[in-house]
Design a protein around this nucleic acid. Structure first.
Length: 404
RNA sequence: GCCGCCAUCGUCUAGGGGACUAGGACGCCGCCCUCUCACGGCGGAAACCGGGGUUCGAAUCCCCGUGGCGGUACCA
């Protein structure tokens, strides 16, 4: 699982690296221990790939760089910066004074040494602990920037002390605000769309996600909302990242995703819908449905009945429109229509509306229910055109049969 | 408890002493468009946590309080 918060951290790292034009190493660092098992790392990498955040996969710290960690511990022990304590190795923290570091988003952060106890850097079984492992990795892998969640601020002094004791230059630290759930608590699974895997299954587009999460904790100016990834790369700056936690708002994501779907070239949207639904879809159906969808998952409920004849009519829909005095007339008019294009169909159907002198929906809704079994579908003329004459008439006959 | 971080509409944010009767966006409400649902257009309600300073002037700077969050592990 890659939480939205993690995805945002990854995005910020990526934007920064892209913007600097240099090489970078994205260090996946999260607060849940389970997440850094090899299987979960694969899941995370897969989610990042879907988000189109490209990177070169490096070594996995705590189970692939043991020698470096061990060597550092030995060095620290030798210099007296660390000592043995019942088999474990602890780092010695001064009793007095304070340690200050400059954070790219928070500014100066100062901690008194008195608040930091001598901490374990190596377990009695010889395995390294998080703070030691990342400090050594940052040094050895030439990490220049560490961009991570604010839940790591209080680890920073420890990592800094380690780096100093090892005689290494510390990287630039940037702690971005955490994400909270709608109730103001830290974001968790029960808050709904909390992971990239989930939003993917819910039919969101990667570019919409990128745009949305970039804006969670960062804003470019007073009115810009939509930005291409190139614009994001160009404009993103750590100094402008907000210091306060944000709440993931799925409604806004939905809206934004809808906008992205509408702006996609039809062919592109068509391809993604086929992939998402796992089936072939006539492109005309996509064309007539696009302005009514906010996610890829909205497609089947909206237009599925145009793909496969509905098994049955929705009871409420049938009750209201099923038995219509105009349906027979509609059937005859359509059977005789000589122009099976949306505009030709509209002409034919509007003629009935005029002749009968009724509201348009009195004619259109019964037709819609007869064809799709529901009261909601893409535009009726377009739907009839997309269905084809044969199928349209067959479905009308079925409805007329049932109405008898 | 102790240490740290944070605090603008319900939500995401703009704002870095006068441009603020605080701007934009989502959501919400109303109107328009309309064959359903949407899309789109127009309009509206909606915020500077509280109290002290500093200053001619504070949403913006300082202090205190309050609240939220994080940390305080042989977790990451």
């Amino acid at each position: 699982m890659l939480h939205i918060g993690g995805a945002r951290t990854a995005l910020y790292n990526w934007l920064l690296a892209r913007g600097s034009g240099g090489e970078f190493v994205l260090r996946i660092e999260d607060t849940d221990r389970e997440r850094s098992t090899p299987e979960n790392v694969d899941l995370i990498l897969d989610a990042l790939r879907w988000l189109e955040l490209d990177w070169d996969e490096g070594p996995h710290s705590q189970w692939e760089r043991r020698e470096n960690h061990q060597a550092a511990v030995t060095e620290l022990l030798k210099s007296g910066a660390a000592y043995q304590d019942e088999g474990a190795v602890r780092f010695r923290v001064p009793d007095e004074g304070e340690i200050t570091f400059t954070d790219a988003v928070l500014g100066e952060v100062t901690n008194p040494y008195s608040a930091i106890a001598d901490f374990v850097i190596q377990r009695s079984d010889g395995s390294p602990l998080y703070n030691l492992a990342v400090a050594v990795d940052d040094r050895d892998m030439g990490i220049t920037h560490v961009v991570r969640g604010q839940d790591h601020v209080s680890n920073t002094p420890r990592q800094l002390m380690l780096l100093r004791a090892l005689g290494a230059e510390p990287p630039v630290y940037a702690h971005i605000p955490l994400l909270h759930g709608p109730d103001g608590k830290k974001l968790s699974k029960r808050h709904g769309a909390a992971s990239v895997q989930e939003v993917r299954e819910q039919g969101y587009l990667p570019e919409a996600i990128r745009n949305y999460i970039a804006l969670l904790g960062w804003g470019y100016d007073e009115s810009t909302t939509f930005m291409t990834t190139d614009e994001l790369v160009e404009r993103f700056a750590l100094e402008r990242v907000s210091k306060n936690p944000a709440v993931f708002d799925e409604q806004k994501l939905r809206w934004m995703n809808g906008r992205y779907m509408r702006e996609l070239p039809v062919e592109d949207l068509h391809r993604r819908l086929e992939e998402f639904c796992g089936r072939e879809i006539p492109i005309e159906i996509v064309e007539i449905s696009r302005e009514k969808m906010q996610t890829l998952a909205d497609f089947m409920p909206l237009a599925g009945a145009l793909l496969d004849a509905p098994a049955d009519y929705e009871p409420k829909a049938w009750e209201q429109w099923g038995d219509s005095p105009y349906l027979q007339e509609v059937r005859e008019a359509l059977a005789a229509a000589d122009n099976w294009e949306p505009n030709g169909i509209e002409t034919v159907l509007r003629r009935i509306v005029d002749q009968e002198d009724v509201k348009p929906k009195e004619v259109f809704q019964p037709l819609r229910v007869a064809l799709t079994g529901t009261t909601v579908s893409p535009g009726i003329f377009e739907s009839v055109a997309a269905l084809g004459r044969e199928e349209t008439l067959a479905r009308l006959d079925k409805a007329l049969q049932k109405a008898k």
